[in-house]
């Protein structure tokens, strides 16, 4: 119960900080627009966006958000050693991690919605036809990136040269998630059967849900 309360408090605290600073939100919107603009300029305004390219655009954008914003999710706890205070609150420390993952997933889902709206109405309508499956892929892909990004951010918090190490790890570790998610999204748009890619996505999410939960305490040991 105490952990649940802690989880809620951390989520509310971070949302209030975001409401005041709007840095993560701005970065999410900015990166979303930037990725679409770069792709559109490169492809030419008249080129019709196919499922493979649209899928790549969507997940490259998520990777950007994962690397640039989610890996900084613990940075808010640096001033005045706020992490120590959070750690001393009643409830397990894993509640802090899960609250951060939840927030990261929220930002990623907002980013995904933004990019999907910018991609074009044709593909968006196609996605809405299989809305449940589409949301499942977005959620699983987003969760994978959020889990890895948040965990890497926690590791980076404890490492002196985290400016280089954290983005490097955050770029490499979710690669299987990105590959599986991009392939699943493209397959869904093409009307193909979702097989191995979706299973791979679920498998990787499970691994990265279990691993950080098992290892999180070691990261924050004093």
């Amino acid at each position: 119960m105490a952990s649940m309360r802690k989880w809620v408090l951390v989520v509310v605290k971070d949302l209030q900080i975001e409401w005041r600073r709007k840095d993560f939100g701005a970065a999410t919107v900015g990166l979303g627009i930037m990725a679409v603009v770069v792709f559109r300029v490169t492809l030419g305004a008249t080129t019709r966006l196919g499922p493979a390219l649209a899928s790549a655009m969507l997940w490259i954008d998520c990777a950007y958000v994962g690397i640039i914003t989610i890996t900084r999710i613990y940075a808010r706890e640096v001033p005045e050693n706020a992490m120590l205070g959070l750690g001393l609150m009643p409830g397990g420390r894993i509640a802090i991690f899960l609250a951060k993952v939840f927030l990261a997933l929220m930002f990623l889902q907002c980013n995904q919605i933004l990019v999907l709206t910018l991609i074009g109405h044709g593909l968006l309508l196609q996605a809405l036809n299989r809305a449940v499956w589409f949301e499942l892929i977005l959620l699983l892909g987003g969760l994978g990136i959020a889990l890895v990004g948040t965990f890497v951010s926690a590791v980076g918090f404890n490492v002196a040269g985290d400016d280089v190490v954290t983005p490097l790890l955050a770029a490499l570790l979710p690669l299987p998630v990105l590959i599986c998610a991009a392939q699943s999204t493209a397959d869904l748009w093409l009307g193909k059967h979702l097989g191995l890619w979706l299973q791979g996505l679920i498998g990787y999410d499970v691994v990265f849900l279990v691993l950080p939960m098992a290892l999180h305490e070691f990261v924050w040991e004093v």
Binding site: N158, V159, A160, G161, V165, L168, L169, L172, L173
Partner: peptide
């Protein structure tokens, strides 16, 4: 690259 990152992390912590 991942294990390269592992070694970089080792160097980054005193």
């Amino acid at each position: 690259a991942l294990y390269g990152g592992y070694l970089i992390v080792r160097d980054a912590v005193d």
